[in-house]
Amino acid sequence: MGNGTSIGRVRGLGAAHSGSHHWLVIRYTAIGSMLLTVWFGVSILLLPNLGHATVLEWLARPVPATAMALFILVNIWHARLGIQVVIEDYVHEHANKFAAITALNLLSFAGAAFGLFCVIRLALGGA
């Protein structure tokens, strides 16, 4: 892109001295999310109906269960990084920003744990 000084480009650091890794992980998780979102969308369209028994039987199979677990993880990971950027852009007061990022982290991990718990219970015939 040709922006910045040569030494700045070698170091790979902007004014904030971090962020390149965050930027890259957003892209990596975006690719995973797109693949799994296509899987999810096509699966929903191919299921004969969305009744309880049908969906239960579908998610009890190994590949759909694995894909659903990955679908939950990659989307929560990607959303966690994206919402962080939104918070950092609009919440300028330090204490509020700290509180918002903390809440985001708690929600992300809680959501991931709950989602994986559901998938495992469904896959192992808990319902």
Partner: peptide, 23 residues
């Protein structure tokens, strides 16, 4: 739409939880 899609994760988890909780 990124924020909207994040709302979707909540709906997905609710759907899975309801699936697990029974008919």
């Amino acid at each position: 739409t990124g924020v909207g899609a994040t709302v979707g994760i909540g709906v997905l988890l609710w759907w899975l939880g309801a699936l697990l909780a029974g008919p």
